[in-house]
Design a protein around this nucleic acid. Structure first.
Length: 710
DNA sequence: CTTGGTAGGTTGT
DNA sequence: TACAACCTA
């Protein structure tokens, strides 16, 4: 039975299409003046000129590589054009590249229904069926039985096509024609290559993006071979050329072997090049690496890989994360709340758009956290069905609170928020109508059609708390006004309203983003918002009118939507913090009368301890705003000198401690260094078979064998 | 104090 | 099955 799977293993025709320096191409299309000149795309300009994420070939010719920083690139190539990744809400925003990637996928699907989006700029295509169709089409139109012979090919489609092991495409095709026995596998590859040539041409015509491709009998080989001739080239791998390819392929270059498994092969089995794998029996590999991995490697050593191309054009998860290195580490809950809010806003924006385009809804929300000196961890809850960004941020933060309770308030080096477990919407039409209704007519909540409430209703809380609030304003308008209010108040409290830092208009400004992050999805009713207003125990109570409650809602308010997986036992808790409160300076005297007041260490103003929490959030918000917009810190000159000194000493100490314990870090993609892997792979450490000890082979690159003919 | 931001997938419980 | 940790690209 195993045999039957083996004999099929060169029957498929698989292509891997990979965009050339994709991000740069996207920018070149946006601004054609970049074309033909050295250029790179960077994100976050401040640290050493930003991290390079793509380099065009003109810049590569001048010695610029990824893994360089923007500054290094400029040093190597002074005329280089560095394009920055757009930033939204203080973090890199890859939307335009995702959208461009979608255009490409769209073109590919016109050639085959079996397209697997592998990344933002890569896709596998199973061309087996398309090739078979072409083959039978040709033979049925001809007197000859052409299925056994190489049919005529459009050579225009094979310009820029290379065939491993052959001097030229023509030589290869000629050898196929002259062969005594029909080389059906090769013939299929040839037809596949012709189709891929057409696909790449179509991609260029419709998107103006260039790409490279690999054509082989399986995914691993198609991927590997794609990288051999770039840019704007395609490479075919006939099965008979596998031994030659393997003899010059370092294991780390093979998909799946670039990590710990590859390290283990090198370090413990002495496998340097892929050909060394052939020294082991399937049993030996399986005993060392487990049945599955062992078998996979054994088959791979012969050029076989059975992984199927899974038709899928949409990502399975939508998420975002941000790192906070060194001194940027998030040390206060306020900052964590702030960034969770930013991440939630982005995720919601993206899953909202995904819903509109793909009629599916995320069910699962995962928070990833990397605390300083801890291993990363993640926790999952349900996604608020209404995609309310405040709720989702609140749910994520409530997870954070739990982690804080177990681990303490440690600095955070990385935060991630990922929506997943997408399920198709049962009824898309009613949703679309509701959405349109809210977008065009955000008026009274009493105008919500019954269908709207029923159609989206899914949250137990709003069922049980209907009519809690009879506010005359619909959720969107309320939230928007509250947000604008908070912003106005913050600006108001700034001494220089017109020239002041917080008032600088900016498309990327966190302020405007926050105002714009209002849910475009209707909340079911206004009850949830009302609930967070009324239950917000950190908001000073002034009056019981709805109007007042709404205005007093803190800017960042986190209401906890309990995960569906963890039923609530106690009444819902409301975790609330105002990063920017609405108390202007005018309220200060009033508040200062409260007993037990404290002095703010930032500005010396006095507040009750309860108000102090809110007041600190105000500073936090201003600091964050300046941080995000690359402005120097404010306010620090207002602090007593003693406090200033303390803080400086403390941070210097931290720095020193970190430097003392810093560990060597591996380099990225380009390097074969294995030091990036912290922990060793947990693999059986049985004795290395003797056959592996002689694994010293001459090191030659793939290109030295197969590079473009000279 | 630096690849970061996203995406898979597998494995153990 | 779901989740969390880990691995890879």
């Amino acid at each position: 039975m195993a045999l039957s799977t083996f004999v099929e293993s060169t029957n498929r025709v698989i292509a891997l299409v990979d965009m050339d320096c994709f991000y740069v191409q996207v920018e070149e299309r946006d601004d054609p003046s970049i074309k033909g000149t050295p250029a790179a795309v960077v994100q976050y300009k401040t640290y050493k000129g930003g991290g390079i994420i793509a380099v065009n070939y003109e810049a590569r010719a001048k010695g610029v590589s990824r893994q360089m920083r923007g500054d290094d690139a400029q040093a190597a190539c002074p005329e280089i054009k560095l394009v920055r990744v757009p930033e939204t809400r203080g973090k890199a925003d890859l939307t335009k590249y995702r959208d461009a990637g979608r255009e490409v996928i769209q073109v590919l699907t016109e050639f085959s229904s079996c397209v697997e989006r592998a990344s933002i700029d890569e896709a596998y295509i199973d061309l087996t069926e398309a090739v078979e169709n072409r083959l039978s089409e040709i033979s049925s139109n001809s007197e000859l039985d052409l299925a056994s012979y190489l049919p005529p090919l459009n050579m225009d489609c094979l310009v820029g096509s290379f065939v491993l092991g052959y001097d030229s495409t023509e030589t290869w095709l000629e050898s196929l024609r002259e062969s005594e026995i029909p080389q059906l596998d090769d013939i299929k590859l040839a037809i596949g290559a012709e189709i891929v040539g057409k696909m790449r041409e179509a991609v260029y015509k419709k998107t103006s993006f260039r790409c490279s491709a690999g054509i082989a009998h399986n995914k691993v080989l198609a991927k590997l071979v794609c990288g051999i001739n770039k840019p704007n080239k395609q490479t075919v791998l006939p099965h008979r050329s596998v031994p030659q390819l393997w003899s010059s392929t370092k294991v780390s270059k093979v998909r799946g072997l670039g990590g710990k498994l590859g390290d283990y092969l090198i370090g413990s089995l002495g496998v340097e090049n892929m050909c060394d794998l052939g020294k082991f029996t399937e049993k030996e590999l399986s005993s060392q690496l487990g049945a599955k991995t062992g078998m996979w490697l054994y088959r791979l050593s012969q050029g076989y890989d059975d992984e199927t191309v899974t038709p899928r054009q949409l990502p399975k998860s939508i998420g975002c994360n941000k790192n906070f290195f060194g001194p940027e580490a998030l040390k206060t809950k306020e900052k964590v709340k702030f960034w969770i809010t930013q991440l939630a806003a982005e995720v919601v924006e993206r899953i909202q758009r995904d819903l509109e385009m793909n009629n599916r809804r995320a069910k699962s929300l995962t928070l990833h956290v990397k605390f300083e000196d801890q291993n990363p961890l993640s926790r999952t809850c349900g996604v608020n069905p209404q995609y309310n960004p405040e709720r989702i941020a609140g749910d994520a933060y409530s997870i954070m609170e739990k982690l804080y309770q177990t681990l303490g308030v440690l600095p955070i080096n990385s935060l991630g928020l990922i929506a997943s477990k997408f399920e198709d919407e049962i009824d898309t039409s009613s949703y679309t109508k509701i959405n349109a209704f809210f977008k065009t007519k955000p008026t009274s909540s009493s105008n919500i059609p019954d269908a709207a409430v029923v159609g989206v209703e899914n949250d137990d809380s709003s069922n049980s708390e209907k009519n809690l609030d009879s506010s005359s304003l619909p959720p969107i308008a309320v939230t928007k006004r509250v947000a604008q209010d908070a912003l106005d108040k913050l600006n108001e409290s700034n001494k220089k309203p017109s020239t002041g830092d917080v008032n600088i208009p900016s498309a990327n400004s966190v302020e405007s983003e926050l105002v714009n992050q209002i849910p475009t999805t209707p909340s079911t009713t206004s009850s949830k918002l009302a609930e967070s207003f009324t239950n917000n125990n950190l908001t000073p109570k002034k009056s019981d009118t709805n109007e007042s409650k709404e205005q007093r809602k803190p800017f960042f308010s986190f209401s906890v939507t309990a995960p569906p997986t963890s039923p609530r036992k106690s009444p819902r808790k409301l975790v609330t913090a105002a990063v920017r409160n609405e108390e202007g300076p005018s309220k200060r005297a009033e508040i200062a009368q409260v007993v037990g007041e404290e002095e703010c260490e930032r500005c010396g103003k006095k507040f009750s301890s309860r108000e102090m929490k809110v007041h600190k959030d105000y500073h936090a918000a201003k600091d964050l705003y300046r941080e995000i917009n690359d402005l120097p810190p404010l306010d620090f000159d207002l602090r007593p000198e003693t406090l200033r000194k303390k803080e400086i000493e403390a941070s210097a100490l931290e720095r020193a401690a970190r430097a003392a314990q810093k560990r060597p870090r591996g380099r990225g993609k380009g390097s074969a260094s294995s030091s990036k892997r912290g922990k060793p792979m947990k693999l059986p450490t049985a004795a290395v078979p003797s056959s592996s000890s002689s694994a010293q082979s001459q090191s030659r690159t793939i290109d030295s064998y197969f590079g473009p003919k000279s």
